[in-house]
Design a binder for these strands. Structure first.
Lengths: 230, 230
DNA sequence: TAGCACAACTTGTCTGACAACCTGACGTCT
DNA sequence: AGACGTCAGGTTGTCAGACAAGTTGTGCTA
């Protein structure tokens, strides 16, 4: 059993997630009224402003609706088909495993279908990834863009979009991953331990060797998954 | 002449809508930083708390992300589309390819993790599949259940749920597939051409041979995909 | 030039206050 | 009894101010 992202998150995020979970758990069915903002603040141990912002976040997601003078009401529970919500609720390791599973097969397809434009994009992605070293947020974004390029080279729009959902949802977890690696001093030896592996992925795709592309991709992703599992 | 109850919407809603429009219009592209909260407040003529709540609403909708000390950044220009809706919009071949991709890797994981209960469920699935021959609808349902059992044996809940979304969405397409096969007289020779292949999948999973499980699963699914591609 | 210290800026959170609004209880009138 | 109006209490909406916590760029130092 894992709780939400272990990320050092703002109180607003924590509060929104707790409320979200309780709505999903059925504490307040659709149409029910939430406790007042002051009551919620006391219950959650946070100020009223923070409660209000958490409620706004849920309202933006379409879960609740606030009516001045009346209260805050649940207008929908989390739809089961909502993949991003499902991913948020799941453990990071499970999400990561599925994400990797998709990318391994995508890399194999990419080796068979890649165009010259795809290869150019992959090269650019490698360079951007190296250039962003030092800035964690930019590094994560460059890494995400690179892996997205791999999947895009498989030329299956459903696959590309599906992968994007995973990437967006996992972005916070990836930042956690970097933080954990820092704590364990795993990055001191080499600032970008995956650089060679990423280059190998591109090389295999360029060579059109699907089997090798799948193998090196699997090996690269297994490293991070291992850290996440610990 | 009076118009309907033209309710004066709260400032938060107005502000969120204006910001959403401007993001959609491209004033701030993805990755760009919004003006500071105080600046936005002055620009919109509202207080900082109200600006913050509007930003929270957009963050809840997945449009922006705020990083303490850095600013508020655009992470998407429009909400992520619902996966079932996305699948319905896509071509059957693309959806089927992604579905198969998932199952191939799931079969490999299943070979490593299957329990005795999983194996019993797979055997039962094979039998149910054979028993449903002759009734197309029942046959499809039994086939779906069998493949779901394969994925379930991988013991990853996210994977199981994700696969289920594909299965549900694809059920109509599968009925079409049977009809196409009838037209081409592909079923006259053998009423259940995939029976041996399905049994081979179970055997490989029972043997714990991940590589073989992946190979036979891929081969089995490739047949249907080929028909669907024409 | 490389590294560090610091100031300026930005978001995060809390408190207090008042306005706008809704709901239900209560009393009055028909 | 039923319809209607009033009102008190609770609830959200909005603002201002203050301080904490985090980021970033600048300029100084070694």
């Amino acid at each position: 059993m894992t709780f939400g992202p272990l990320r050092r998150s703002p109180l607003v995020g924590q509060a929104a997630e707790r409320l979200r979970d309780q709505i999903a758990a059925g504490r307040w069915p659709v149409g029910a009224k939430l406790p007042g903002e002051v009551a919620l603040g006391k219950e959650l141990g946070i100020g009223r402003s923070t409660v209000r912002e958490a409620i706004r976040a849920l309202a933006g997601a379409g879960l609740v609706e606030s009516r001045q003078g009346a209260g805050v009401f649940v207008i929908a529970t989390e739809p089961v088909e909502d993949l991003p919500a499902r991913l948020r609720r799941a453990s990071a390791a499970e999400v990561y495993e599925v994400r990797n599973l998709i990318e391994v097969r995508a890399a194999m397809l990419a080796a068979e279908r890649r165009t010259d434009e795809d290869l150019a994009a992959l090269d650019a992605g490698l360079a951007a990834r190296a250039a962003a070293l030092g800035d964690d947020a930019a590094y994560i974004d460059a890494d995400i863009a690179f892996h997205a390029s791999i999947v895009a080279a498989a030329h299956n729009e459903v696959l590309t979009d599906l992968f994007a959902v995973f990437q967006v949802t996992m972005r916070p977890s990836l930042l956690d991953l970097l933080a954990v690696m820092d704590e364990k001093n795993l990055r001191t030896a080499s600032p970008d331990p995956g650089a060679d592996a990423h280059a190998a992925m591109v090389a295999a795709i360029r060579a059109g060797d699907a089997e090798r592309a799948g193998r090196v991709t699997e090996a690269e992703l297994a490293v991070s998954l291992g850290i996440l599992r610990e």
